[in-house]
Design a protein around this nucleic acid. Sequence first.
DNA 1: GTTTTCGTGATACGACCGTACCACGTTGTT
DNA 2: AACAACGTGGTACGGTCGTATCACGAAAAC
Lengths: 204, 204
Amino acid sequence: MPKRVDHDERRAEIGRALVQVAARKGLHAVGMRDVAAEAGVSLRLVQYYFHTKENLLLHGLQQLTEGFGERVTARVRAAGENPGPRTVVEALLMTSLPTDEESRAFHLVLTSYALLAVTDEALAAQPYLQRPDAAEDAVTGLLEQAREAGLLAPDADARTEAVTLLALAAGLGTSVLTGQRTPESATAVLRHQLNRIFREPKAS
Amino acid sequence: MPKRVDHDERRAEIGRALVQVAARKGLHAVGMRDVAAEAGVSLRLVQYYFHTKENLLLHGLQQLTEGFGERVTARVRAAGENPGPRTVVEALLMTSLPTDEESRAFHLVLTSYALLAVTDEALAAQPYLQRPDAAEDAVTGLLEQAREAGLLAPDADARTEAVTLLALAAGLGTSVLTGQRTPESATAVLRHQLNRIFREPKAS
DNA sequence: GTTTTCGTGATACGACCGTACCACGTTGTT
DNA sequence: AACAACGTGGTACGGTCGTATCACGAAAAC
């Protein structure tokens, strides 16, 4: 047999190329030939590792969401050890804002997938898009945790505020993406909302 | 000459067909033949009234935004004569939530356009997508108007709250679209936020 | 009544896309 | 050494899409 290549690594490489092209030309305009050229391989190779285009798109989506999860944990970890609930929530929300070029690509393509799933049932059946409920649960849990620590505004309902924060972050994200708002302005608005929900911690 | 048809009306009809098809199959999958079939005319007709596909898409976008404006004013007018600022703001925001089938189509296609404009500069140059700033100004103005009437929470900044409300409505809208949230839940969250910003009016 | 212009239909063309097929070298296995 | 499985390249096929072309009837203009 030939070189005995690592298929998973190769697939990931091609997946990255897919995201790059999608960020540049739009997910709808991505062809297998584009992906092959971006990855520097032949069209046949893309066919070989993902038999069909649908497979390629599905794998790209999976790769994207996994990458997002890694970004969140990396950001949380960068916030220091044993971070408070607010720090974690803030890291989670800020990650979903397109600030640099890479996160822009991330968000554009991920939003394209979500929108595509509305009219494409094969995509809608994928588990990676039904997961945002998990984010809601996570934030709700963090807010309740904050409440027990006395860090939450007294009249705040955890789940309602969690939903609000996530929807707000998503809305701000797309407005940044379309150029209607600067990343700085978006983070400021998000932080303002966080300041409302979280109470100042007692000075020790 | 033949029947001397009203071109504008015909164009609007075809534009409606475009939106219908886009809502069913996704904007990316819309072909001129689909639009023609949906409108019950021949492909040649679509070509005749809109020379190119780009023209067709542009006109569809324009038609969509105009329809949205009409929806808002209709909803405001339905709220009774001489409505207060909160009523107007609430009507504006609620209109942007996909509740029935028609507004679902509205929002799906409009969001698709917005996302398309990120990677397509010909679409991005259209004025109808740069306008949401106008919505921000409008809501800001209404909030300031409310402040002067003593209807606003004292610590609220008009523009920040306007941006928050619009981004929140957009985020909630897409989550309703993707089926992660019911329309009822979304309106409840939105109203909760409005209750926070607006103060109870003095009993007369 | 002739001519010209407008609206409409049918069909064709070139390009691109996803997929399938065929061929060949390479590297393990026996 | 012989053979089989794997990875890779090149290329062709069927379909669809946007667009262009040809043709024809119907009404307004003169």
